[in-house]
Simulated scan of single mutants.
Amino acid sequence: MENVFDPKDAQNYINRINNLIEDTHGLWGRMMVDQMLAHCSVSYELVYEPEKHKKPGGIAKFILKKFVKPKVVSEKAYSHDSPTSPQFLIKERKDFDAEKKRLIGFIQKTQQLGAEAFDGKESFSFGVLTAKEWNNMFAKHLNHHLSQFGV
């Protein structure tokens, strides 16, 4: 698994994103490339812009921690067409260049803050995570969707 906190690995993600063009088509799924970029940014919005999203209630958070968290923070890759949480659904088209710039900014900010800033940090949905769990969550999600679009 790549390390999103490592400058070389973070730059690799940025290079892959920069290989996308506005009419890149996915190899599976229904999202357009601009929607995919916005979708990938949601993971970071939950960290850096949490006010944009409704926090899960007690029962929902329990279910997320018990059943979803193990799948999200493990190193096992997502399968194609994995289910998506409603807050990650991007239904409308987005500005490709703006979404690309935004996602790259989130990746750079995360790398610069480093693993220490995330170790023991509380997740919006999953409670306290280790730096490794944060890394797995970010890296696995990016890899899944960048692979979906052939980069």
Rank of each mutant, 00 (worst) to 15 (best):
K121H: 12
H80Y: 06
Y78P: 08
A115K: 15
D119L: 04
G26K: 13
D119S: 00
I17Q: 01
A38W: 05
K65F: 02
H53Q: 05
A131R: 11
K76E: 06
N12S: 13
N18W: 08
A115G: 03
Q108A: 02
E75A: 05
P86E: 07
N15E: 08
A131S: 05
I59A: 12
A117P: 14
A98R: 14
D9Y: 00
C40N: 09
D81I: 15
K132N: 10
W28Y: 13
G120R: 10
N15A: 12
M36A: 02
H80W: 04
R102Q: 08
I107L: 02
V42I: 09
G58N: 12
G114A: 04
F126C: 10
E122V: 10
V68S: 03
K121L: 13
F67E: 00
N143E: 13
A139M: 15
L142Q: 11
K132Y: 01
F96Q: 08
G120C: 07
K109D: 00
F96G: 03
E92W: 14
N135V: 03
P83Y: 01
G26A: 06
D6Q: 14
L129Q: 08
E49T: 04
P56D: 02
V4T: 03
S79V: 13
K52A: 03
G120N: 08
K94V: 06
G26S: 06
V4R: 05
K69W: 03
V47T: 07
S43I: 08
I90A: 07
K66T: 02
F118T: 06
Q148E: 04
F138A: 12
D9C: 09
K132W: 01
L20G: 01
H80A: 09
I90S: 09
S123H: 06
R30G: 05
K91N: 14
L89A: 12
N143T: 02
D97E: 13
R16F: 06
E133H: 00
G29R: 08
L20S: 01
E45F: 09
L142A: 05
K65I: 06
V42P: 08
D34N: 11
Q148L: 02
I63N: 07
E49V: 07
E49K: 13
